[in-house]
Structures are given as C-alpha cells and as structure tokens.
Write a protein that binds this DNA or RNA. Structure first.
Lengths: 138, 138
DNA sequence: CTATAATCCTATCGGTTTACTAGGTTTTAA
DNA sequence: TTAAAACCTAGTAAACCGATAGGATTATAG
C-alpha cells in the first residue's frame, strides 16, 4: 500500500509541474486545491526539497518550485524518496537491499524468485513514466 | 511491503507443493524447515485452510495438504487472501475498491493513472505464476 | 521599521497494524 | 489411554502512520 505521504507528494509535484510559469507555488494553494492537510503537506514538501526535487523561497510571495524539468523526473526516484523501496521484499530491493534472516539461500527461495519478477515489472512502469507524463491531464 | 504473514504463507504452500505424495504435512515440520515461528505459522495455515487452499487432518499423523493441483493455484489468489489488495491504492483495486476521499475525479488524478499501470504489471506477473512455478527449485 | 506571509523545525500523539506469544481445547491414531 | 496434532481466543510490545501543535526564521510590501 502506498502511504498518504507518497500519494500527497506525487499529487503536489504534479500540481507544481502543471503550472507553466516557474513562479513559486505556496503550500497553502496546493493544500486547498488537492484537499491535503496543510501542515502534513508542509512536511512532505520540505522532504522533497531536501532530497533535491524542489527548490523553495521563503517569505511573502515564496513557495516551492521544480528544480528539474518534469520530463527528467522519473517516478522511480520520487517513490524511492517518499515511500522507500519499490520491491515488496528487502531481499530483492536494488536500493534498499537486506538479507532475510530466515532464508538460508536466496537462489532457491520461492518468494524471492516471484518478487524479483514483480519488482522488475513495477520498475519498468515507474521508470518509463516521468512527472511530465503523469502531470498532463487525461 | 509484503508482510511476514504473506511471505511465510507462500513459503509454506511451496513447501507442501514440493512433496510428491499427498500425505499431510505437519506445521512443526514446515516451521523447522523454513525457520518460521510455529505458533505464528499455525495461524497462517489455518487461514489458508479456511480460504480453501489447504485441507487439514487433526490428531496424530495429521497435518495440512493441498486441495488443488499446484498448477491451478495462481499467486494472485494467494496474495489476495493473505495480504489483501494487489493494487497500491484502493481506488485502483479490482477486488477491494474504495474511493479516495480527497480526490474529486479519478479520471484526472495523476496518482490514479500511474497506479493503474503498476497494478496491471503486477497482476500480469502474479497471474501467470502458479504455485507449481514458484515451488520448483532453481 | 513594521506587519504579514511564507517556509522551516521539533515534538507529540492517538490509532492502527504487525508479528508474535501464551495457554489452552479438541480430535485422532496407535 | 496416551500422545500428537490441529484448532481457538486472547493479549501484547513495538513500530508505523497520519496527522496536529506551536512556534522560529526569513523575506517582502508598505
């Protein structure tokens, strides 16, 4: 299950991407438009800034803006930052690998084999979709 | 993330499927062989029985056995019973659909569009893999 | 210079879920 | 009759989630 944090984060990025001009967008505006608790959204936007997706401007007229072009932001990157691993099991994760303590041999593990396939299928989809793709309406 | 429950459940089913004869397999045997807490495993096997994957025999010499052929058990079915929805968001779930309360229109939702693609990719993999496929070693 | 609007930061909190554990009851084969 | 197995109910510690609270900091406008 995707956490609300990730869901809201993606929606916020898409909202910002949809604006033609590169003027900073305020958290309050996104919050209202997308029906997201403002305080919660603030913390998410902050995280997206710290991880290099957004820039910010403080004070009156400030807000958040994209640092890269929407077409250059792959959804794999967004989800890894907000949600964590894309794999359903740590032992098949490329970026967050962890060995299972119960499993003596990954090569003969039935779950492992299956989850590698699921991971690759998800990576394919999330890797070929950019923020530009999902931000465009309909 | 896949819960331990689902992971253990799949491992147990694969273990039982690997046995040629159809004699009941005891929870204790699976528990030892797969390094799973016995009591926890018992509750999982019970659930698999109640949902129609396993039969059981009580008393001495009892245990659990497959009701269908391993080749007829799709991994979609197993995961839906143990884990719940395959979709990452309820609003794109086929079997556990729920509307998002924040989202006025699914057709223009960026997350929705993306998650449908992820769901379909996962369904494809999990639907074409049966218990027979994943139980066979290497 | 001051008021205001915005980001930024830290802490907390109630609720839910997870992964077990405990302690039995019931059934069956030997 | 004994032991081995499934079956059942309850509880529980820890983690995680989705916020909320309350401000500190910074920048702009007048």
């Amino acid at each position: 299950m995707l956490s609300k944090k990730t869901k809201y984060g993606i929606k916020a990025l898409a909202y910002i991407a949809r604006k033609k001009d590169r003027k900073p967008v305020q958290a309050s505006e996104i919050s209202e438009s997308e029906n997201i608790s403002q305080k919660f959204l603030e913390s998410i936007l902050l995280e997206l800034r710290k991880s290099g997706f957004l820039g910010s401007k403080k004070g009156k007229g400030g807000g958040y803006y994209l640092i890269k072009e929407p077409g250059e932001i792959r959804m794999t990157a967004v989800i890894r930052v907000l949600e964590g691993p894309i794999a359903m099991v740590p032992c098949v994760s490329l970026n967050y690998y962890e060995k299972c303590d119960d499993c003596p041999d990954e090569n003969t593990c039935s779950v492992h084999k299956l989850m590698i396939q699921v991971r690759d299928a998800s990576l394919q989809v999330l890797g070929e979709n950019t923020l530009e793709d999902i931000a465009s309406l309909q």
